[in-house]
Nucleic acid binder design. Structure first.
Lengths: 328, 328
DNA sequence: CTGAAAGCGCTTACAG
DNA sequence: CTGAAAGCGCTTACAG
């Protein structure tokens, strides 16, 4: 910029005015500045600008895994909102590791992002207190913050899980298995709770061997499923706790001799083309992201003193796999 | 930092030394500085740091759509590489719009990203010449740069498309349709070329109505497919040009009276569970991303004068849909 | 309409 | 072992 000013024979501030389209520059002067800019290939350094301005026009997004298709629409929704506000998106994966979540989040804070959308992996977010106090607008999505009061956007996992389980019960099942993600994840425990409550509401017992929580590693899931499907008294229906578990269950059931009912939490692409077509409880990942971004920019605009909590619905989509009757 | 220095009764540089773990600070002094840091809740501003250092430890990623599952593993691979080099990822979608690609890319450059991984939507990247000259390491992935010589990582779309088409021909098909993405996209034309070459190699004609290019909008794709499947001389097999087109084709064929063979470019989750299981030519999106990131950091490390071009293989995975015989 | 000075929060290059 | 001065590339607050 100094070079441009020198070449155009003007002051630094005049170049700044031209670059930012500020008024009060004679057409003639502006012309000279523009020529110098082109000749020197000048491009404003937005990092420097940002340092002086206070805001970085950057939003940080921390989620479990950028490669997981569930988070694609969520990321895109946050990106669109950011774009609408002239901001860019700094994104990263926590890999469901609390340490990694914190490192990543604090690295984003060190870059002085204006706001943060977090799918938490940890259960203690007090490390963010100074950041939030310093003005970083923070929204938790998909799962609540731990030991921290902050804006949150959730899906009604409890109701969704109840609906899924009640649906299986309504189709005559009494021995229903639940295979979920790791137990420290909020959505896992909520969905497990929904399953239990629906079973209890129908006066059905839940045997210990009918619930299995753990990583979504296909090997682990397959092992858990096989255990439930074996023995003298196998489950006749399965409720799977998220998209990855459901995919593994669908694969296994496709090769299983006994028709077993299946309802999954989260929809899967092509799910309607499976045999039988996949019944799911679906949530709207894009809406989750859009809502989170709205709360974020709302807060950045100076709104909402008290943290807000938004709960979005999940809805059953019956397609066939969840309507199979119990095998005799 | 000034406040910390003041409170600890030391100079600015000493705080800097402590914060960066540089040697040459007495334990006693360090202790005082650390106390001041904690008391004031000081956190280094990495934006200021990068302004002075020259490098921002940030990599920009421009792709078609953050929500498209195809790009998930690619993004994640770039993220992992960036992380390995202490860099963060600034990501955004071009939406297959050349103007948006350029705006986004230049916005990333204005933030002074150290490097750029681009899935191009435009066919003229000369706008990047000054940026590259200024030292922004730039790698194009999935599609080549337009009018610019730069590091590039591609899949062998031509060979993959030939293999897919030859596979259908080997199973007795003579009337094969190709439905692809928009014609300005490099991968579309390469795959179309592979289709044509395989047909020509088998001395089969290609009628104009057997090829249809356009957006991946399900309505458009369905319309094109229906046209090919109708009439007195319908195609007996389909080769679909990417994941989205394949998904629409699988949906349509599932409800179609005549069994029609299908080979898709790109694999789909659950594809093996369809009826018939989906035959595809698969590419490794994660490897695409990993390789691109390698070239990027290689260049940042001062390597490779001449731009490099890496071509990765695509391989046929026969599962059933591509082995259906022609209907009589 | 225009520009010189100060400052955003750090690091670099020196000097002691 | 420690720190004062200058500078990274901009914008802010003034003054003319």
């Amino acid at each position: 910029m100094k070079d441009v000013a020198h070449r155009a024979g003007v002051g630094l501030k005049t170049v700044s005015r031209v670059v930012n389209g500020e008024p009060g520059v004679l057409p003639d002067t502006e012309q000279r500045v523009r020529e110098a800019i082109t000749a020197l290939g000048f491009r404003r350094n937005d990092s420097a600008r940002t340092l002086r301005k206070g805001r970085t026009a950057t939003v940080g997004l921390v989620l479990e895994d950028l490669a997981d298709p569930f988070y694609g629409p969520l990321s895109r929704a946050v990106e669109e909102a950011a774009r609408g506000h002239g901001a860019l998106l700094l994104a990263g994966s926590s890999d469901e590791d609390p340490v990694r979540e914190q490192e990543l989040t604090l690295a984003l804070c060190a870059r002085r992002v204006d706001g943060l959308v977090i799918v938490p992996a940890s259960d203690d977010h007090r490390y963010l207190e100074p950041e939030i106090a310093a003005g970083v607008a923070t929204v938790f999505v998909d799962r609540p913050a731990g030991l921290l009061d902050a804006d949150t956007v959730l899906t009604d996992n409890l109701a969704g899980a109840k609906e899924a389980t009640a649906h299986l019960i309504a189709h005559g099942h009494r021995r229903i298995g639940f295979v979920g993600d790791q137990p420290q994840i909020h959505t896992t425990t909520e969905r497990l709770r929904g399953y239990r409550e629906a079973m209890a509401a129908a006066d059905l017992p839940v045997r210990a061997e009918w619930t299995a929580l753990g990583t979504t590693d296909p090997g682990r899931v397959e092992h858990a499923l096989r255990a439930m499907l074996a023995g003298p008294d196998p489950v006749t229906a399965l409720f799977t706790g998220n998209n990855r578990v459901t995919a593994t269950a669908a694969r296994l059931l496709a090769g299983h001799p006994r028709p077993t009912a299946l309802v999954g939490f989260d929809d899967l692409e092509l799910g309607e083309l499976l045999d039988p077509p996949l019944t799911v409880v679906a949530q709207d990942a894009a809406l989750l992201g859009r809502t989170a971004a709205e709360l974020l920019f709302n807060r950045l605009a100076g709104g909402a003193a008290a943290p807000r909590r938004v709960v979005l619905p999940a809805g059953l989509i019956p397609r066939g796999s969840g309507e199979l009757p119990p095998h005799s």
